[in-house]
Nucleic acid binder design. Structure first.
Lengths: 230, 230
DNA sequence: TAGGAAGCTATACGCTCGTATCGTAGGCTC
DNA sequence: GAGCCTACGATACGAGCGTATAGCTTCCTA
C-alpha cells in the first residue's frame, strides 16, 4: 500500500488526491459500502467515486467481494489503531473514526464475516472498560458488554431516523453534542428503580426456572420480557 | 382486506393457509423485507414464498414499492394494536410482535418513509414511559427517549452478530432471557459514577459554549465526546 | 535495448432484477 | 346468458448488475 505511480492512460499527473488509485478505490468502497450497504453500492459507482474505471476495481481486488474483504481488513487493522489514538490521546473528532464506525455498523447489520470478529473485539474492550469503570456483580459480564456495544452501534445505524426525530443531523456538531448529552443522561442514572429492578429480576428468575424445567421435559417455550417503552 | 375468493387458474380449493392471496403476499413481503431488506428481497422470491406468481404481486400492489408501502401501512396500523395488547395484557411472546419489531428495525436502517413516523410514535410513547417511570430533570427529555429507542432497536438489528458473540440465538428462549437480564442490568445501575458524569457534563457544557460562540462568528466545528467503550 | 510485468481502460457477456403485456378463468349484474 | 370486472399465470423486455477479456501504456530488468 506504499506510494506507487505507474503507467495508465492519464499521464502521470496528480489526480484530485495524492493517493494511489488502489487506495482511492478502497476509500471509495469504504464510504459507499457504509452509506448504501454491500448490495446498494455498485462496482461502477465505487469506480466513479474513485475517478477510475470499473475494470480497475477488479484488477486490484479481484471481485466486489474481494474489495469488501479488503475494506474489512483495513478497518480491522487501522480501525483499532485509530480508536486507540482517539481513546487515549483524546483525538475524538476525527472524521476517519466516524467513517470506521459507520462502516462497522453497516457490516454488522448485514452480517459480514469480519464484522463478527470486530464485534467480538469491541465486546472484549467494552467488558474491560466496564470492569474498570462500572463494576458490577453481574453473573454475565460478557452479555452486558455485548448488549451495550450492540446498542451503541444501533444508535449509529439509526442515524437517519434519529436525526429526523431530533430535528438536527446527528453528525453535525450540535446534533452530536445533543446525542452525547442524552447518552450521558442515560448512562448516569438508572432507568429502573431498585424496586422495579428487583421485581423484574424475580420475574426473570421464575422464567429461567420454568425454562430449565422445560429443557428436561421438552415443554412449551417462552420468550423474554421486561423492556421499557420499546 | 376482507375475505374474498374468486376466479383464477387453481380451482377454488383452500391453498396451504386460509388467507387471501393478497394477504399471503403481504405477509411474505413483511417477512422477506425484514429478513433481507428492501433490495435483498426480490419480487420473485416474495411471490414464491406466497406460492403465487410474480405477476400477482404487481396486480395487487402495483409495484414492489407499492407492496413495501402496504407493508408499512400494515405495520403502522396493526403494529400499535399488537403492541398495546402486548404491553397492557402481558402477551409478550407473540411471534407476530417480533416480526413487527424486526420489520421496523430494518425499515429504520434503510430509512423508509413510514419508518420515520413510526419512530416518532415510539419516541413519544417512550418519553411518556420515561416521565412516569424514570423521571429526570433532563433539559432534553425527547432526546433521551429518542436515543433510548434507537439503541433498543439497534440491539434488534444487530441480532445476528449479537447472537454469534453470545453463543446463543437472541431469538431463542434462552438467548432472549439472557439479553433481557443484561438489559435489566444496564438499566438498573448507572454506568457512570456521579463523579465521572459531572466531569463529562462539564466538558460538554464547555463544548456547547464553544459551539455557541462559533455560531456567532463562523468558527471551527467540533464533534462530540464521552462514550464508554464503544 | 528488447521483453515481460504491472496499471489501467474499453467493451462485451450473461444473469437477474422490476416491470409491462397478454391471455384466461370465474363471479356479478342486468 | 351476454357483458364486464376482477383474480391470476405465462411470457417477454429493458436496465443494471458483476464479471470476463483484450489491448494499450509505462516502468523494471537483464
Amino acid at each position: 500500500m506504499a506510494r506507487d505511480r505507474r503507467g495508465g492512460s492519464p499521464p502521470p499527473t496528480a489526480v484530485s488526491t495524492d493517493l494511489t488509485r488502489r487506495a482511492r478505490i478502497r476509500d471509495a468502497g469504504l464510504r459507499l459500502f457504509s452509506e448504501r450497504g454491500t448490495e446498494g453500492a455498485t462496482v461502477r459507482d465505487i469506480a466513479r467515486a474513485a475517478s477510475v474505471s470499473p475494470g480497475l476495481v477488479r484488477h486490484h481486488f479481484g471481485s466486489k467481494e474481494g474489495l469488501r474483504a479488503a475494506c474489512d481488513a483495513f478497518v480491522l487493522e487501522r480501525g483499532t489503531e485509530i480508536k486507540e489514538r482517539a481513546l487515549f490521546q483524546g483525538e475524538l473528532d476525527q472524521p476517519e473514526l466516524l467513517l470506521m464506525h459507520r462502516y462497522l455498523a453497516r457490516s454488522m447489520v448485514e452480517g459480514s464475516g469480519a464484522a463478527a470478529s470486530m464485534f467480538d473485539r469491541l465486546v472484549q474492550a467494552t467488558q474491560l472498560w466496564l470492569e474498570r469503570h462500572a463494576p458490577s456483580e453481574t453473573p454475565d459480564p460478557r452479555g452486558r458488554a455485548a448488549l451495550l456495544i450492540a446498542m451503541e452501534l444501533g444508535a449509529l445505524v439509526m442515524r437517519e431516523v434519529l436525526s429526523r426525530a431530533l430535528g438536527s443531523d446527528t453528525l453535525s456538531p450540535e446534533g452530536s453534542l445533543r446525542v452525547a448529552r442524552a447518552k450521558l443522561e442515560l448512562y448516569s442514572q438508572p432507568l429502573l428503580s431498585a424496586d422495579a429492578a428487583a421485581r423484574a429480576r424475580a420475574a426473570m428468575d421464575a422464567l429461567g426456572e420454568r425454562l430449565d424445567a422445560a429443557a428436561a421435559g421438552e415443554g412449551r417455550p417462552a420468550t423474554g420480557a421486561g423492556d421499557p417503552g420499546g
